[in-house]
C-alpha cells in the first residue's frame, strides 16, 4: 500500500494502530505515534523552544500547514537544528507505525499536516530504516518485553562506569514507568531510549516487570555494557545463557 501511495505521489495520512505517517507528494513529511514523544516535546523539553513560542507558531502557521517553515523564517529556530530534531521524531514514530504489530492500515487522501514539509523523506528510506532498527535492537538483546512493560531494577549492583545516557534512563526506572514514559521524561526519541533499555537489559541491570527472574550474581561484571559478549566468568552467567537460549530458539 505504501509503495503504491509513493508511486502515485499521494498526499494524506497513512494510519495504523500505533500511529500515522503523513505523506505529501508521495514522500513522508512527518510521523506521529502515541509511543513516541511528539516533535513539540523534543523541542521544548530541553528549553530549545518555549511552549509559548511553539503555540505562537502553531496559531500563526498551522492553518496554512507551514509551522516548520514559520519556525525557521521567524527566527525562532535554526533550520539545521529543526531538520535534525524533525528527522529524529519522524524516524522515531515511523519505527512504531511500521512495526510488525501495527495492524491493518488505512489511508485518508488529501489530509495535509500542519507542520508542512521540513525535510521530506522517501517512503523506501523510512521502511529500510525501520527494518534496520528492528535488527539493531534484536542484536543488542533479543527479548522485546522491556520495550513495552514497566521496567524494574534487578538486584545486580550498578556498574558505576555506565554511560551517562544509560544512567539517565536508569534513574527513571521505578517499577511503574515504561520505556516510552522515560523517553517522554527525558525529551528523547523513544527508539533511542529502547536502545539504552535493551543494553541495560542485556547487562542484566534492568528487566521488564513481568515476572522475569532477576539475575543474581555476587560481583558486577566488568565492562558490562561493551558491545561484545561478556567476558568469561567463573560462575554461570544467567543473562548470557538466556541470550544463548534465545539465539538458538531463533535459528
Amino acid at each position: 500500500m505504501l509503495h503504491r501511495l509513493a508511486a502515485e505521489k499521494a498526499t494524506g495520512s497513512f494510519m495504523r494502530e500505533r500511529g500515522t505517517l503523513h505523506l505529501a507528494d508521495g514522500h513522508v513529511i512527518h510521523a506521529e505515534s502515541p509511543d513516541t514523544p511528539a516533535l513539540e516535546l523534543l523541542l521544548t523539553a530541553g528549553g530549545a523552544l518555549s511552549p509559548e513560542q511553539w503555540r505562537q507558531a502553531l496559531d500563526a502557521a498551522g492553518p496554512e500547514q507551514r509551522v516548520g517553515r514559520f519556525l525557521v523564517d521567524s527566527g525562532r529556530f535554526p533550520e539545521g537544528a529543526l531538520e535534525l530534531c524533525h528527522l529524529g521524531a519522524l524516524y522515531d514514530a515511523a519505527f512504531f507505525v511500521l512495526g510488525p504489530d501495527g495492524g491493518p492500515a488505512r489511508f485518508r487522501y488529501g489530509v495535509e499536516h500542519w507542520l508542512g514539509a521540513v525535510r521530506p523523506v522517501p517512503v523506501v528510506a523510512v521502511q529500510r530504516e525501520t527494518a534496520r532498527r528492528q535488527e539493531l535492537l534484536h542484536e543488542i538483546w533479543p527479548e522485546d518485553a522491556a520495550d513495552t512493560e514497566p521496567l524494574v531494577r534487578t538486584r545486580l549492583p550498578l556498574d558505576t562506569r555506565l554511560p551517562r545516557r544509560q544512567r539517565a534512563v536508569l534513574e527513571h526506572v521505578d517499577g511503574v514507568r515504561t520505556a516510552a514514559d522515560i523517553a517522554r521524561l527525558l525529551g528523547r526519541p523513544a527508539f533511542h531510549t529502547l536502545v539504552d533499555v535493551r543494553r541495560l537489559a542485556a547487562a542484566g541491570i534492568v528487566a521488564a516487570d513481568a515476572g522475569i527472574v532477576a539475575p543474581t550474581r555476587r560481583r558486577p561484571r566488568p565492562e558490562a555494557l561493551a558491545a561484545r559478549p561478556p567476558a568469561t566468568s567463573t560462575g554461570p552467567d544467567i543473562s548470557l545463557l538466556r541470550r544463548l537460549r534465545n539465539a538458538l530458539e531463533g535459528l
Binding site: L42, A81, C85, L186, H192
Partner: peptide, 10 residues
C-alpha cells in the same frame, strides 16, 4: 560531534 539544544546524538 554536534552539540544541540535538544536531546540528540549527532
Amino acid at each position: 560531534f554536534v552539540r544541540t539544544t535538544f536531546d540528540s546524538s549527532v
